[in-house]
Write a protein that binds this DNA or RNA. Structure first.
Lengths: 187, 187
DNA sequence: CTATTTACGTCAACTATATTGACATAAATC
DNA sequence: GATTTATGTCAATATAGTTGACGTAAATAG
């Protein structure tokens, strides 16, 4: 046994094997253009979230806090159930980060007026400021993108992103955006 | 103290406070359109990765395995360093999932020919098949999107996604895509 | 009015994915 | 021969998620 075996390095089954598989893959998926889009989407999202991550570090918060704060700020008065529906996580998972945001004074909760079991979530002024700073970073990227894109392509972005959403989720997303627009008055 | 205090529910600072903050935010970020794009990007990515997640469950793999397998399949002979550069994670983090993929027989490694310190990563036939199935799911979404988009908007998607990538990363991504295209022959 | 359902909180154990820091080894290079 | 490079590995820790079980107060159905 040489050092290669010791390090669990072996000969590949055959170069032809994976090459054939790759060609098959291309045939099965139609073309490589779609694959290229898959990768671009991955890279784009990686860099997109990176912006906010750096700011969040200063507060000891992570992406989970960001998402919660974002949606609470965007739709003040949001219920726990509505938030869970947007985030698609369990209440236990939400509760941990929400508790931290409440304790840190970035989010406040009050009992619902029509249904007192509900906790309506609101950003505090500090929370709203942080949410605004985070949103500013991310929308700055979008605005920069729109600037460097040919005018004809600009309107396509939101159509494209919306079309990427699960068909069954689109109505919900549309409703959320309408809700946010109504709440924010200027968003 | 009533039950509301016990449950850490308090009155919001004032409805006006957060409303003003939201208006400020809109003013600071220019407009709500960019904010809307931020959210659409979040929802789109959430559903996009969901496709693959469901398939990966059957193999006991997670997203981390998916990413590794994907890039190994796309660029057979990839080195550890190149993979780390793409994924932007630490070698310790990569090593855990890579070890599992090697042990499960989805990826193979062999010593580099020009530099024997390097481990060149290749998908096994099984790995290539899984990678293909995963890619098929995700590119199917993209192809469906292209179908439902007006023809004029189709070309815009890849331009848009590329523009979303950090300027300093674009050359690297471009190189990766060229590399993948050369390796896959048909992708 | 009682029974049930609903909206939420919480404890516990576990998994997946990432991090930092320190140290080891073999191969390449100066 | 000394150093740098490519990689592996051990250990501790953090973040973000899960399932399952149980509790409570308020709304609602019978």
């Amino acid at each position: 046994m040489d050092e290669l075996v010791a390090r669990k390095i072996s000969e590949p089954p055959s170069v032809a094997a994976w090459r054939n598989a790759a060609v098959e893959a291309a045939a099965a998926t139609g073309d490589g253009d779609a694959l290229e889009l898959v990768e671009l989407f991955f890279f784009a999202y990686r860099d997109f979230v990176g912006d906010a991550d750096r700011l969040l570090e200063n507060y000891g918060f992570g992406r989970a806090h960001h998402r919660v704060l974002h949606f609470v700020n965007r739709r003040p008065g949001l219920t726990i159930a509505a938030l869970l529906d947007i985030l698609k996580i369990t209440k236990q998972s939400l509760n941990r980060v929400l508790k931290q945001l409440l304790e840190a004074g970035f989010v406040e909760a009050r009992a619902g007026v029509v249904d007192r079991r509900q906790r309506l979530l609101y950003p505090t002024p500090e929370g709203a400021t942080l949410a605004r700073d985070l949103a500013a970073l991310q929308s700055a990227r979008f605005r920069k993108v729109m600037d460097e894109l040919p005018p004809a392509a600009r309107g396509a972005a939101s159509k494209f992103l919306f079309a990427m959403i699960d068909v069954g989720e689109r109505e919900r997303v549309r409703a959320h955006l309408a809700c946010a627009k109504a709440a924010g008055a200027a968003t």
